[in-house]
Design a protein around this nucleic acid. Structure first.
Lengths: 208, 208
DNA sequence: GTCTATATATAGATAGAC
DNA sequence: GTCTATCTATATATAGAC
């Protein structure tokens, strides 16, 4: 497990006892991530973070002069987090389906299995009022995200594990949309286990 | 076409020429809906609406004393809008698939086929900071939404139009998640036609 | 029903001391 | 790197005149 992952999980589970000391800058990114998942980008303030860390707002401006700098850092960290997660596995020994299941799993863990929303949704839902630099970073992430899933779909099709429906890109789009939508729905706590249910439906529709 | 639908579309297409005069209260709800789709609930202010209508903030407070009152009204209007839409059709003569396609179509129209995001996502993505009354209204809407789609799935299963995968509720959850996710993804303008692509994938996975 | 005026709180951000 | 102090803008909301 990578350092950032440890930190993210440590924070999500109560900010305690990983034995690893975090510097303030990382802690800020970590807390901002969580707040964006709960409230969206505009829904958190430097004061919220300052209160949690028991420091002052001005200290946060030292690390991230503008709020959009922090927003960009959150997306970068999230990207790195996923890359690290993937790096943990021996991809050569896995089937395409196992790789896709792994994808669903880390997607779920970043949201604590529905306790929090999808990080990207916290930005996307407000994209009409996001600063340009954030919209660009968001587009950059989503492009990479699409490529990641498209690769997995292509592999599954080549190996005959997945059923072909439209182009691989279209199937990837469908997978991402369903997974993101499920994480978002999980937030209103109406249907426990939405995410797992939706993931099972996606896999079934891909394989049989 | 119902009055509200006319109004909503009129607003979305430039607030002009339906021949129908709207009262201020309806116009406020209309504009708030659009702003929530673009920026989320916290992303718009009474000032934004006042500027568009060329009135003062205080006038909006007359109609909706608190912002959460306006938020609740937006959800109610959206519910009514969908009900009215459904009422336009002769449901007896339609197949289950046609009914589902109709559902996807009005879902798309409320978001101008991807020009705007999903109304509910504008709330859901920020649910961690929503006033209690709004969270309740949101849950009420989503419960109804689920029942609506579940009914359509059940009908399709009974008629043999849809393939069974898990329970009808699980299939409905999957359909809603994918559709909502697609509308949200459409906002970053990266992949033109995401919504239509995803809808086609959903239908294919249901029927073959 | 809309206005002016105002209250109060909080936002993002900067300057400069330690 | 964190602090105090402060600036400026804007948010939600209310009171009372027209």
């Amino acid at each position: 497990m990578t350092a950032f992952l440890k930190r993210l999980i440590a924070c999500h589970t109560g900010c305690a006892s990983t034995g690893e000391k975090l510097d303030t800058k990382d802690q800020i990114v970590q807390i901002a991530t969580e707040l964006i998942q709960q409230r969206g980008y505009q829904g958190f303030s430097y004061q919220d973070i300052a209160t949690r860390l028991d420091i002052k707002k001005a200290s946060i401006h030292y690390h991230f002069p503008k709020k959009e700098d922090l927003g960009v850092a959150v997306i970068s960290a999230y990207y790195q987090y996923i890359q690290d997660w993937i790096g943990k596995y021996d991809l050569d020994k896995m089937t395409a389906l196992e790789k896709l299941e792994q994808y669903f799993q880390f997607f779920a863990e970043t949201a604590l299995h529905g306790e929090l929303g999808c990080v990207m949704n916290g930005f996307l839902a407000e994209s009409g009022s996001l600063p340009e630099v954030l919209r660009e970073k968001l587009a950059w992430f989503e492009k990479w995200h699409m490529e990641l899933v498209t690769m997995k779909v292509k592999e599954g099709l080549e190996k005959g594990e997945f059923k072909k429906r439209g182009t691989p890109e279209e199937q990837a789009l469908f997978i991402i949309a369903a997974a993101m939508g499920a994480l978002n729905m999980a937030q209103d706590k109406q249907t426990p286990g939405v995410y797992d249910i939706v993931v099972r439906q996606i896999i079934e529709s891909l394989t049989c």
